[in-house]
Amino acid sequence: MGHVDGTNDCYLQKSAADALNKARIQQHIPLKSGYGSGDCTRTFNTNLRFWQKYANNQVLAKVQQGKETKILGLVAPPGTSQHLWGLAIDLRVGSKEQRKALNQNGWFQTVENDVPHWTYVGLTEDNLPLFGFNKQVIRGITYWITPL
């Protein structure tokens, strides 16, 4: 794991942390909460707690059947969060320059309508379509979505 500079307890996979630290040198990019761990890697139990807060087992069954997708913009089903794997972080991004620095370092928004959520993909924007990502602009924000 790699440490996110300027935080007490924010860790991501080493390549993701290195890329984020590089982007944060280029631009001031604060974490969503402003301080740390809840924005970074999360445990399975934390993911499960979020799921139970916003959804239930009936919703999970509909997600598994492909009949429900809106909930996925709010919370990931237990065990599937990119935060669990140290590949996602919640950030406060408000400028084109911040977005550009993140994108140049392999970070993209990949969860439709989850504005603070950024995923480390480790690719250039030009290569995202080659790996199945589809560009969608929603309310002025560019998301790179994978088909369900």
Rank of each mutant, 00 (worst) to 15 (best):
N56R: 07
Q26Y: 02
L87F: 08
G94N: 11
Y11D: 03
C10A: 14
Q98W: 04
L148N: 10
Y120L: 11
R49C: 02
G2Y: 07
T69Q: 12
G73W: 08
A23W: 08
H3T: 03
A55W: 03
L31F: 03
Q52N: 15
V137W: 09
H83R: 07
I29W: 06
Y35E: 08
T7W: 03
P147A: 12
C40M: 04
V93A: 02
E97I: 02
Q27S: 10
F50W: 13
W144R: 00
Q109M: 11
E97S: 14
S81D: 04
F44E: 09
V59H: 01
V115I: 15
L72R: 07
N134I: 11
P147E: 14
T110I: 07
L128E: 01
P129C: 06
L102P: 07
G79W: 10
T119H: 12
K96R: 14
Q82C: 03
G73N: 14
L20I: 00
V93H: 03
Q98S: 05
T146H: 09
L84M: 11
F44P: 05
K62M: 12
I25L: 12
R49G: 03
G140F: 09
T80R: 11
A23M: 06
F50M: 13
G122D: 00
L123D: 01
T142G: 02
G66C: 03
E68Q: 14
L91H: 06
T46E: 14
W85A: 12
N103G: 02
S33Q: 05
R99N: 11
L91C: 09
K22N: 08
L130F: 08
T142K: 12
Q26E: 15
D18F: 03
R42G: 01
A19Y: 13
V75Q: 00
S37G: 11
E97L: 10
S15F: 09
